[in-house]
Deep mutational scan, measured.
Amino acid sequence: KFNKELSVAGREIVTLPNLNDPQKKAFIFSLWDDPSQSANLLAEAKKLNDAQAPK
Rank of each mutant, 00 (worst) to 15 (best):
I28H: 03
K25M: 14
Q23V: 02
I13L: 04
F27W: 00
P54H: 08
L16D: 01
I13W: 00
F29D: 15
S38D: 05
E5C: 14
K4G: 12
L48Y: 02
A53P: 04
D21R: 05
A43G: 04
P17C: 10
D33Y: 06
K55N: 11
A26E: 14
K25L: 15
S30H: 13
D50Q: 10
I13T: 01
I13Q: 01
K55T: 10
P17A: 07
S7G: 08
Q37P: 02
N40W: 09
E44D: 06
N3C: 15
L42C: 04
P35Q: 03
I28T: 01
D50S: 07
A26M: 11
D33H: 06
E12L: 13
E12F: 15
N20S: 15
W32F: 10
P35E: 04
D21E: 12
L19D: 01
K1T: 12
F27E: 04
N49W: 01
L41D: 01
N18Q: 03
E44T: 06
G10Y: 15
Q52P: 01
V8N: 13
L48F: 03
K4A: 13
L42A: 03
K1D: 11
A26P: 03
K25D: 13
A51V: 07
K4Q: 12
K47F: 07
G10Q: 14
K46H: 11
L16K: 01
F2R: 09
V14R: 08
N40L: 12
P54A: 07
K1Q: 13
A39G: 08
Q37W: 04
F27D: 06
L41H: 03
E44C: 13
E44N: 05
L6R: 04
A45E: 01
L31K: 00
K4E: 14
T15S: 13
A45F: 00
G10D: 05
E12R: 07
K4V: 13
A26K: 13
F2K: 09
T15P: 01
Q23T: 05
N18F: 14
L31M: 09
S30V: 07
W32D: 06
I13S: 02
L41C: 05
L16W: 02
K4I: 10
D34L: 00
D33M: 10
L31S: 03
V8S: 12
L31I: 09
P54M: 07
N20Q: 06
Q37C: 10
E5M: 12
A51K: 10
P54E: 08
R11Q: 11
P35R: 00
L48W: 04
L41E: 03
A9E: 09
D50A: 11
N3W: 15
P54S: 08
A39M: 09
A53L: 05
S36R: 05
L16H: 03
E44L: 08
K24P: 00
A53T: 08
V14W: 12
E44P: 00
L16Q: 03
W32R: 00
W32V: 06
V14P: 03
F29C: 15
S36T: 10
L42I: 09
N40V: 11
K25N: 12
K24H: 00
D21T: 10
R11G: 05
P35I: 04
A39K: 10
E5I: 11
L41S: 02
L48T: 04
A45D: 02
W32E: 09
L48N: 03
I28L: 13
D50Y: 05
E5R: 06
E5F: 08
A9C: 09
V14D: 10
S36K: 08
E12V: 13
D50H: 07
D50M: 09
L19A: 00
N40S: 12
K46N: 09
D21Q: 07
P35D: 05
F2I: 11
S38Y: 13
F27R: 00
Q23D: 03
A39T: 08
S30W: 13
F2A: 08
A26S: 08
G10V: 15
F29A: 14
Q52Y: 05
A26C: 15
E12H: 08
Q23G: 03
L19Y: 00
L16T: 01
L6A: 14
A51G: 04
Q52A: 04
N18P: 00
L19E: 00
S36P: 04
A45P: 02
V14C: 15
E44Q: 09
F27P: 11
P54I: 08
L42F: 02
A9I: 15
N40C: 13
L42E: 04
L19K: 00
D21A: 09
L31F: 02
S7D: 09
S7I: 15
G10K: 11
L16Y: 05
S38F: 14
S30E: 12
S36G: 08
D33L: 14
Q37R: 06
K46C: 06
P35F: 04
D33G: 07
A53Q: 09
E5H: 08
L6E: 04
L48V: 07
N3E: 14
L31H: 01
K4S: 13
K46L: 07
K1C: 15
E44G: 03
S36H: 05
W32Q: 07
A39L: 10
S7T: 13
D33R: 06
K46E: 04
L16E: 01
A43R: 10
L6S: 05
N40K: 11
Q23R: 00
N49A: 03
D33T: 10
E12K: 10
G10S: 14
N40T: 13
P17D: 05
V8W: 13
A53N: 07
A26H: 13
V8K: 13
T15Y: 07
N3K: 05
F27L: 06
A53E: 08
W32T: 06
P54N: 09
W32M: 11
D21L: 09
K24C: 10
S30M: 14
N49R: 01
L42K: 01
I13H: 01
K4Y: 12
L48K: 04
S36N: 07
F2T: 10
K47W: 07
L41F: 03
L19V: 01
D33Q: 13
F2V: 13
D21I: 10
A43F: 06
